[in-house]
Amino acid sequence: MLPAFFENTFGLSKAMAGMIAASYAFMNLASRPGGGLISDKLGSRKLTMTVLTAGMGIGYLTFGHVGESWWLPGAVLLTMCCSFFVQAAEGSTFAIVPLVKRRVTGQIAGNVGAYGNVGAVVYLTLFSLLPEGAIGNKIFFEVLGVLSIIVAFVCAFFLKEPEGSFAEHHEGEEEMQMESFPVFAED
């Protein structure tokens, strides 16, 4: 939807709109791993998730006000900034995965990825039901923004980070590993 947004809002050719919209996906190369790195370096996954999700919400709410009167390079910069927050929030979400239960990290990561795709389908279905043009784009971006702000508040007030989440082993995990490998006495 982003190439069509740039094409219709700024009167660009399909090729130019596609290249500009690709800046959103291009940011993924550094932003997603960066979100995990920020989470690790900051030392608080809760704070990281809250700040990145709030930044994503602000970016999408700002996108709701982008129109033909906007300066095109400013809209491209907004696209890249919003993309940074979205992709970094995804990276910080995956940084939480090992905290659930380390021995099933792969299964949990698969579920996180799968439900991310479910979210994409839900939002694109919503987008398909909105009116075409500037009004539909405005509603779509504002829905994304408001829901992101709500999720940021949920992260701030309800997300709990386990004690010792940056330790080598989580609470109770060492005992479980020892039980998994019984030692047999020799005769």
Rank of each mutant, 00 (worst) to 15 (best):
I58C: 07
T9F: 01
G116Q: 09
G55P: 12
A54M: 13
G116H: 11
A75M: 08
N137R: 13
Q107T: 14
G74S: 15
A156D: 04
V100K: 02
H169G: 06
I135S: 13
E142I: 13
Y24A: 15
G136H: 02
L78A: 01
F153L: 13
Q87G: 14
G59C: 08
I135H: 11
A30R: 03
L147M: 14
A134H: 13
A134L: 12
L159I: 07
H65P: 05
T79G: 07
Y115R: 00
F181R: 03
A17Y: 03
G18D: 01
S23W: 11
V51E: 01
D40C: 03
F140G: 02
V118L: 15
A54Y: 08
Y60S: 10
L129W: 09
L126K: 00
K41M: 14
C155N: 15
K46V: 06
N28I: 11
L124R: 10
G133E: 01
A167I: 03
G116T: 11
E171R: 04
A156K: 01
M27K: 01
V66I: 11
V151E: 06
A25K: 00
F158V: 10
E132Q: 11
A15E: 15
P3L: 03
H169S: 12
G119E: 03
M16G: 06
R102F: 01
Y60C: 09
G113D: 08
F158R: 12
F10C: 01
V76T: 04
A89H: 05
